[in-house]
Computed example of a mutant assay.
Amino acid sequence: MKIILFLFIGLLFLLVLIIAIGKIVNARKYRISSEAGVQKSEYIIIGGIEQYIQIRGQDISNPVILMLHGGPGSNMAYYSYGWQADLEKAYTIVQWDQRGCGNTYYRNKHAEKPTLDLLLSDLDELTEYIRLEYGKEKVIIMGHSWGTFLGGVYSGKHPEKVSAYIAVGQMVDFKLSEQVSAQEAIRLANTAGKTQDAQDIGDALDSVMSFQKLDKQNAMELMKFRQLKEKYLPSQYGDKMGALQIFSPYMTLSEWKWMLSFDSLIESNSEIYKGLLSENNSSVYDYSLQYEIPVIIIAGDCDWTTPYSMALDYFNNISSPDKEFITIGNTGHIPFVDKSKEFSEELLNALNGIPVN
């Protein structure tokens, strides 16, 4: 028994040592060392509460990209080091833990819950802070998944503050996305002769479509539904995310807690999910399709979380003085992680020539 205990302690120590070494290596590898650069994390007052932002870039005089994470509730600042390094050479990138999420949540557990309107107000305050603090006339808005919904609405309303809008995994309609991906999963299940799975997916879809809110019970049902779909759909999250998270030198204790706090995520973002599940203003088509700024939409061709076909249809329906649709092949919902080099090259090429400062 003692031998087993000693082995367990030894293995645990080895695991901790490997993680610590990985964090140290990444901290050195991705440190911003240029004299003109910036690398900091801080809390600033937005919407009357302390909200967390991370700022990284090789030259503070570069244009600013404000990144809006998905979810709702899926903060990404702590693992961004691993995919945005190439972008940091030409742009200063601001990551933000939105109200009700990650570090911001743990500083303000009892703050007003986020809604779309409240987040739009917070985003406007953050944009103003960046413009004043870094002397920028405008910022570039880049959103992922849920962040594209928030970012698209904001960019459409504030062309005087936004120089370009970048959507990665464009969210079009929450419920319709589940329908489209379920139909594909059912087709593949039937093709594979798994008629019972096809039936189960269809039954689960009917249940999910009836949701009016996303409490813990409904959220668990939604997760099981997605797991059943993903038996037949391509991988949505690749195999690189785990290492980026575990070996992140920037992951705080609050982010560890948040990653394990499913109940807090669902509860704190309940009002947003209620809005996305409603029949009113829950689709990007409920908002203006006319952008006064350049628009770049980037999608993985295997994305079934925010289906590729829906993002392409949206692109074809919007008007913009300069728009471009970029496909990242053989990747799902996080092309910036799964194929970070290709993603950065494509995005930098698309931004080249656009007046962004």
Rank of each mutant, 00 (worst) to 15 (best):
L12A: 09
N26D: 06
A27Q: 15
R31F: 08
I32P: 11
S33I: 11
S34H: 04
E42M: 10
Y43P: 08
I44V: 11
I46T: 12
I46N: 10
I49E: 09
E50F: 05
Q58K: 13
L68G: 08
G70R: 01
G71C: 09
Y81G: 05
A90R: 14
V94M: 13
Q95Y: 15
W96D: 14
D97A: 14
Y105H: 05
A111M: 08
A111F: 12
A111Y: 12
E112W: 09
K113N: 15
L123S: 02
D124Y: 08
E128Y: 12
R131S: 04
Y134A: 01
I140Q: 03
M142I: 00
G143N: 01
G152A: 04
H158L: 11
A164G: 00
Y165N: 02
I166Y: 03
I166A: 00
V168L: 04
G169F: 01
Q170T: 03
V172T: 09
V172K: 05
F174L: 05
E178I: 01
S181F: 07
S181D: 06
Q183I: 05
A192V: 03
D197C: 03
D200V: 10
D200E: 14
A204L: 15
A204Y: 13
D206R: 14
V208C: 09
S210Q: 15
L214V: 11
L214F: 14
M223N: 10
E230Q: 10
Y232S: 06
G238P: 02
G238E: 02
D239G: 06
S254H: 12
K257E: 14
S261M: 01
S261N: 02
F262H: 06
D263H: 04
S264L: 10
S264D: 13
S270M: 13
I272V: 11
K274Y: 07
L277P: 01
S282H: 00
S283Q: 04
S288G: 05
L289N: 07
Q290F: 11
Q290L: 04
P294F: 01
V295E: 01
W304F: 13
P307M: 05
Y308L: 05
M310T: 06
D313G: 03
Y314P: 01
F315I: 02
F315C: 02
N317K: 14
P321S: 04
I326C: 05
I328H: 01
I328R: 06
G329L: 12
G329P: 08
G332L: 06
I334P: 13
F336L: 13
V337S: 13
V337M: 15
D338I: 08
S340I: 05
E342D: 08
E346I: 03
L347T: 06
G353M: 04
G353W: 04
I354H: 04
